[in-house]
Design a protein around this nucleic acid. Structure first.
Lengths: 155, 155
DNA sequence: TATTGTTATACTCTATAACTATA
DNA sequence: TATAGTTATAGAGTATAACAATA
């Protein structure tokens, strides 16, 4: 077994960075995933439906094309997702005034209610974070902000 | 608004804790999700197939029931997921010696190769984490460890 | 010609319920 | 009787390719 570094991008990450990343994967794949699943099940939303609702800010019509991009899926899928949300009365299709090829989605009043319940549930701070000390919370917040501000060149 | 800095289980979380949680959601839903999708697409694995492969440690037969639990899905789904992995020669079904009702899954040699490539890709530390200072990395690691060690009573 | 949304197709995942073979 | 895995079914997500309307 040779000592091949798996990082073609020049140097190896520190063991601490490695562990940080694996802890984040663990957190995301287990706890956060469970919580998300439980939440959307409660509102009887599928994952893409929930993600779509999350992106549809009230009063801001979103072109279906853009939603496809936000959902990271092919545009053809958005037709069905929008169909089902529309059938439940949560969103509405509108033709864009500026480009008649474009259809936008807007949350209905009922959609706003569901969206707000969804966000309220999703954003409920889990105990393991709420019980960190004030100092730890600040530090964690600052580091996470920096991580999200740093572009990721597909490491 | 009262000056709640500590959590009595019924109190509001601090604004810092709130932001930490929302930053984690953002990180998980955008960056980590994209990276996971790109990775499994490269290996032509579906999300549940990748999760299954991740859980199948070489040389450790896993009852299909347990895999269903690990995937957080109904047991009936595992049949199809295992079928497709088996058809690709990545896993094998074995009858448990201790209980002939139970079938276990084991990664084949080819499966081990794919699994290792998967893990190597998934675990590549993204630039935004690799470029944190050594102090920040240690701090982040310690806080994440604590978060994962703290039980989450469905906040 | 290029783009937007739709449709058709094929595959996968998902839960539910009924079935089998073991225990 | 209870449990593990399978099958049947129905619904939803996914990408690809072809299509209509619009630009």
């Amino acid at each position: 077994m040779t000592e091949t570094s798996q990082q073609d991008a020049s140097n190896e990450p520190s063991p601490e960075a490695q562990e940080v990343w694996e802890l984040l994967i663990e957190l995301s794949a287990s706890r956060m995933r469970q919580r998300f699943s439980r939440t959307i099940a409660e509102l009887q939303l599928s994952p893409p439906q929930a993600h779509a609702l999350r992106q549809l800010e009230p009063g801001q019509p979103l072109p279906m094309r853009d939603l496809a991009c936000g959902l990271a899926c092919d545009a053809s899928n958005v037709t069905g997702i929008a169909d089902r949300l529309e059938k439940r009365g949560l969103v509405e299709r509108q033709v864009s005034p500026s480009d008649r090829r474009v259809k936008t989605l807007v949350v209905t009043p009922a959609g706003v209610v569901t969206r707000e319940r969804l966000l309220a549930l999703l954003h409920q701070v889990p105990a393991p974070i709420a019980t960190l000390s004030a100092g730890e919370q600040r530090l964690l917040r600052d580091v996470l902000r920096r991580i999200l501000d740093t572009p990721d060149e597909q490491g």
